[in-house]
């Protein structure tokens, strides 16, 4: 291709018919499963793009997200889920409990910040990943922009978990959420979204699983339960 045209296209200054499809994709939203959350999200969760989640570590941010994604699970979708630089070992039991398919999943761990971002970008733009989860502290505008473009190109969602509690303004994100745990509720605020305004936070009931008295993931649990004597409940 003509190098000038190529550059223009890289900067997304040229409109092409394929962009229309992509833009449509960008607008496409799917329900979160919480009516009040859908309400402030201009009718749903974006299907592509970079999503920032600001919270304290351990306020149920990943389970909340997996719950939302669980509503949109397409069993035919064999694309990968990638976990990049998690702050510890990802627990397989936890993923199974959230209906995540371990077959189509891989983890990149012990990677430096640079490597983690590089891998995130590669995964996002490859088109082979459905969801990319990245744990990083502070990302610059350029880094976020790269991931955002990559996610749009690969039609995937890139989730950025940020425990630093301070978000730089005007990062080119598709959606930026801040989560706060309040006992059995999660308070969700929207700092920024592409189609719509920042909204006042809503409270969504989201208790810990252990409080829901679901102990096992499947119907076979009955068999297992015979072997376990609950001493304290």
């Amino acid at each position: 291709m003509n190098p000038i045209l190529h550059e223009l296209q890289n900067k997304q200054w040229v409109w092409s018919a394929t962009c229309a499809k992509q833009q449509e994709q960008q607008k496409k939203r799917s329900t979160t499963g919480f009516a009040s959350f859908d309400n402030i999200l201009s009718s749903g969760f974006p299907d592509t793009g970079m999503v920032h989640i600001g919270s304290r570590q351990g306020s149920g941010e990943l389970s909340f997200l997996l719950y939302i994604l669980g509503h949109q699970l397409d069993t035919k979708d064999a694309r990968f889920w990638v976990f990049i630089a998690p702050p510890g070992h990802i627990n397989a039991e936890f993923l199974l409990a959230n209906n995540v398919d371990l077959e189509h999943l891989f983890i990149i761990h012990n990677a430096s910040c640079e490597d983690a971002l590089w891998s995130a970008e590669q995964c996002a733009k490859s088109g082979a990943c459905a969801n990319v989860f990245v744990w990083q502290k502070n990302l610059s505008q350029v880094q976020v922009r790269k991931l955002e473009v990559a996610a749009q190109r690969g039609r995937c969602r890139c989730f950025w978990f940020d425990y630093s509690q301070q978000l730089q303004q005007n990062l080119p994100l598709t959606l930026s959420l801040s989560l706060q745990r309040q006992q059995d509720w999660i308070q969700v605020g929207i700092n920024k979204q592409k189609a719509g305004w920042a909204k006042t936070p809503v409270k969504i009931p989201f208790p810990l699983r252990c409080k829901k008295s679901i102990r096992y993931t499947s119907s076979e649990s009955a068999n297992l339960q015979h072997n376990v004597v609950n001493l304290h409940n």
Binding site: N91, L96, L102, F106, H109, C210, R215, T217
Partner: peptide, 26 residues
């Protein structure tokens, strides 16, 4: 419970039963 293995290896079928109330990050 969680074991890391090289990517691309054929693995056993997923178990039908696991604890549902475990934390996400260990």
């Amino acid at each position: 419970c969680s074991q890391l293995s090289p990517v691309g290896h054929k693995r056993n079928k997923q178990p039908s039963t696991a604890y549902a109330d475990r934390p996400g990050i260990l």
